[in-house]
């Protein structure tokens, strides 16, 4: 599987420093940049998943901390937000029926994470909750917040579990690698059922367990090919599509009779 590659352009900040006297007095702070070489990717209908490589750079890293490996980077590719209903089946008179449900607003359809180390080794769990970072810590807002917290928690866990089971929420520990003191490469997984729409690539920089900076870029994922044209016609020209489906059926029935005529 050929990886899809997007390159970041490292901006030489040293020139800007000379022009900014205020910056000269305080020690330079670290920041992070990612950039994508393209703002849109087309995938075909037969797409069976791929790795997306994102390059990025650290600016003004402290060489000592970098040598000790105390810089950590978390890169997230987040799909478009959609409302989702989670339903639970229960047994009624022996039959399994969808009974309870919980609706969540703005749930990212997909959420792929790549990290330098396991998330729990990078920072405190409370930090991730605060940043809403990671598939397990991502804040999922119930549409009706008056429900019992236990129920909401149960359905939130089920939502995360179902998303992970279908490969839409994934975590790639070690997916971010430093190529030099400044340059890093992140590999996030695109699931075969990756949704179309505007995705957001975000990179989080941590220094010795403390969150420093975030940077983001947008990526449009489109589907192309014959099947996608059919899908688009079915949604945009649904009436004509229906008429076509009926005509096709009649034509097939008529041709079938001519070809296999017996009376």
């Amino acid at each position: 599987m050929a990886g899809l590659r997007a390159f970041a352009a490292a901006v030489p900040l040293s020139m800007l420093f000379a022009l900014s006297p205020a910056m000269a007095q305080t020690p330079p702070t670290e920041s992070i940049q990612i950039g994508l070489s393209t703002d849109a990717i087309s995938i075909t209908a037969g797409f069976s998943g791929a790795d997306l490589t994102i390059f990025g750079s650290l600016e003004n890293p402290d060489p000592l901390i970098a040598r000790q490996g105390r810089y950590d980077v978390v890169v997230v590719l987040e799909g478009p937000p959609r409302p989702v209903v989670v339903r639970r089946k229960d047994r009624v008179l022996g039959v399994w029926i969808n009974l309870d449900s919980e609706t969540f607003e703005n749930v990212p359809v997909s959420y792929s994470v790549a990290t330098t180390r396991p998330l729990q080794d990078i920072a405190e769990p409370a930090k991730y909750k605060q940043l809403s970072l990671g598939a397990q810590n991502l804040y999922l807002k119930p549409a009706d917040e008056t429900g019992s917290p236990a129920t909401i928690e149960e359905f939130t866990a089920a939502l995360r579990e179902r998303k992970a089971a279908t490969g839409l929420y994934s975590e790639n520990v070690g997916g971010v690698q430093f190529l030099s003191q400044n340059l890093f490469r992140a590999t996030v997984r695109l699931a075969p059922n990756v949704p179309v729409g505007t995705h957001k690539a975000r990179a989080f920089l941590f220094k010795s367990g403390m969150f420093v900076k975030e940077s983001s870029a947008q990526l449009e994922i489109r589907k192309s090919g014959f099947e996608q044209s059919v899908f688009r016609v079915a949604h945009d020209y649904s009436f004509l599509y229906g008429v076509f489906a009926i005509s096709l059926a009649m034509l097939t029935g008529w041709l079938g009779r001519i070809i296999f005529r017996k009376d």
Binding site: R82, P83, V84, V85, V86, R87, R88, K89, D90, N98, T103, F104, A143, F155, A158, L159, E161, R162, K163, A165
Partner: peptide
Amino acid sequence: NLYSLSAAG
């Protein structure tokens, strides 16, 4: 799977 997801709205 007792739980299922579907698009709301």
